[in-house]
Design a protein around this nucleic acid. Structure first.
Length: 292
DNA sequence: ATTTCATCCTGGAGGC
DNA sequence: TGCCTCCAGGATGAAA
């Protein structure tokens, strides 16, 4: 469920808390989350870590990248339920973690002053990659295996003309928007919300959407993501920021998770259907069913 | 080349 | 209360 706005908020929170703080050690509690390079590279990495520090934290798509001053990067792929929690390994937790989450803490970074960053992921769809960051012109193959090269553009970087070109395909627009290799960052919540805002039925085939509506859709995608970032993201069940706070965008959702409830614009009941194996929430009146 | 689909995983919900 | 089944969805890799 972490989509672009949630990951952006995680990055924000982590930047405030852990940048430039000397690292004591990292602990891997659940090795299955480690992806990418071989075990011995991980071992070497962990050996080189004490005394190092994180020098930048950035977001790409729904992934978070922590750059460390030993020329390595950690790439967190959060999957469904991956998140971070700040605390202290010396007891006296500042942001106490629910007891049931303790066993889902798979990776921690302990800082010399006692602060601890925990990576938590009950459903374990999340992955942690390691790659070296020596030469930008010659990227680490581990980045490729993490699928970074295939990712589509960031929504905020897309120009309307580009978006029109991208949409020239025979495929339901819902599936297109979820496809991270076409446009990245959107998940089930924000695709449904964007399509509602633009008045487009999720089953509409991309290339049948009028140019005017494509432009409108792009504007709504950007503004909804922006608003969701401002409100701290959406918490449905699992998402929390690193301090344990819920996102506040949930009560501004118009369609996602509102099956059978009245449309906020026209009062007709919101419907839910499956498209490409994913549920899609929409208003049957505000989002006209495509003719075909 | 492009798109669809099963798969991974756990907790929570609903049925009986 | 307990047991069972089903469902949620991000990303992947195989199949169509």
């Amino acid at each position: 469920m972490p989509e672009l706005p949630e990951v952006e908020n995680m990055a924000l929170g982590l930047r405030e808390a852990i940048l430039k703080r000397p690292i004591n050690a990292v602990e891997v509690k659940q090795p299955d989350i480690l992806a990418g390079p071989k075990r011995r590279q991980w071992r070497a990495f962990m050996k080189s870590l004490p005394g190092g520090q994180i020098i930048s934290i950035t977001r790409r798509a729904k992934r978070l990248i922590a750059k460390i001053d030993n020329d390595c990067c950690l790439l967190f792929q959060l999957g469904m339920t991956g998140r971070f929690s700040l605390g202290r390994f010396d007891g006296d937790d500042c942001y106490p973690l629910e007891e049931k989450l303790v066993k889902h803490t798979h990776f921690t970074i302990n800082f010399t002053d006692g602060l601890q960053l925990r990576f938590i992921d009950p459903r374990r769809f999340g992955r942690l990659w390691l790659f070296s960051d020596l030469d930008p012109a010659n990227p680490d193959p581990a980045m490729e295996s993490a699928g970074m090269g295939r990712l589509g553009p960031e929504p905020f970087d897309i120009k309307p003309e580009k978006f029109i070109t991208l949409l020239n395909r025979q495929r339901p627009i819902k599936s297109f928007l979820l496809d991270q290799n076409r446009i990245c960052g959107l998940g089930n919540i924000y695709t449904d919300e964007s399509l509602f805002a633009a008045g487009i039925h999720p089953e509409t085939l991309c290339r049948t959407v009028t140019e005017e509506k494509v432009r409108r859709l792009l504007k709504h995608i950007k503004s909804i993501l922006q608003q969701a970032i401002r409100f701290g993201g959406t918490t449905f069940s699992d998402y929390r920021n690193p301090y344990g706070d819920m996102g506040q965008f949930r009560n501004r959702l118009k369609v996602y998770g509102r099956e059978d409830q009245p449309c906020k614009r026209c009062q007709s009941p919101i419907q839910r259907i499956q498209i490409g194996g994913r549920s899609s929430h929409f208003c049957p009146l505000c989002q006209n069913k495509p003719t075909a």
